[in-house]
Design a protein around this nucleic acid. Structure first.
Lengths: 159, 159
DNA sequence: CGCAAATAGCTGTATCGTACAGGTAAATCT
DNA sequence: AGATTTACCTGTACGATACAGCTATTTGCG
């Protein structure tokens, strides 16, 4: 799994490969973890539902298209997610007063509560898992991940 | 996406919250990126197929159950993935000489080639995206991700 | 103003990845 | 040898997603 580039002191090259590997792995593990974590009775939030609620929480009520654009999802997907969330009482749809076509989605208190619970559970999980990490390492990971996401996002977005 | 809201995490805890946020985000972005990257004609490898090939490459030919256990997937899922990979000529099935029930899966040259191509493309992508990172930062990210995965994995596994 | 084009959202349909339950065959245990 | 376990496959179902097509509304333009 290495393509020797043989330029200079190439430790940076192999980190790209490692990053690729680890991100792929994390995706798998994250999936598995989510599946295992959000088990039976909880009937917790699916992947997208969680991010939708988080985004509504962070960025305020907004319509389906805005959500879709922001989350890099098809409008129809968001429509369905939103329908499910509404069915479960986690968000509310209201006609957009400024645009007769639009619907404004806002989180309900129950939705925020549910989201916070999931968030807390996951955060707890990380606390558990990273119990023996130094605060510095945690902080560094958080920062680097954030930078990675920002880079990935801007790349994905304007292209 | 700012995480300033609604968790009530103590400042010392905040890196955990940030990690949670960023991992969730990375999952979404990774999905989107994969979807965008592996576009049309390539008919590239799906998520699982890629990891299967990588694992076969890294750990050698093995049977379906071993793969399933290792990848945290149901046997049936692996069976189907493997069937698809076989149909596409990327892996080969052979009866296990030591166990009449088993089938040993090995990557074909074409499979390895395909895998390497995807890997290279992704690595290139990361190189592109992280162009302005210092080698140190890249290296640190790779290392921390690896540690995170290891922690997540061992947690997921024996439980 | 009135109609064409764009936009917002929904619904139908398809695909993919995955799981669980059930089947058959082979191996292992007693 | 019979019972149990293991390995794999198949049927079926579900969830997340995309794309295409529909309707209602808004916007832009002659």
């Amino acid at each position: 799994m290495s393509d020797d580039h043989a330029t200079g002191a190439a430790p940076g090259d192999s980190s790209l490969g490692r990053i690729e590997t680890e991100v792929a792995l994390l995706m798998r593990l994250g999936e598995a973890t989510r599946r295992a974590t959000g088990s039976a009775e909880h009937r917790v939030l699916d992947r997208a539902a969680y991010v939708i609620l988080r985004h509504l929480d962070a960025a305020g009520p907004q319509n389906v298209s805005a959500l879709a654009a922001r989350l890099n999802l098809d409008g129809s997907t968001v429509t369905r997610q939103v329908s499910a969330l509404q069915r479960d009482g986690l968000i509310a749809r209201a006609p957009d007063p400024a645009d007769g076509r639009g619907t404004v989605i806002s989180p309900t208190p129950a939705g925020l509560h549910r989201m916070a619970a999931v968030q807390a559970a996951r955060t707890r999980l990380y606390g558990d898992i990273l119990a023996d990490w130094t605060p510095t390492d945690r902080d560094t990971l958080a920062t680097l991940l954030s930078r990675l996401n920002q880079a990935l996002d801007s790349r994905t977005r304007h292209r």
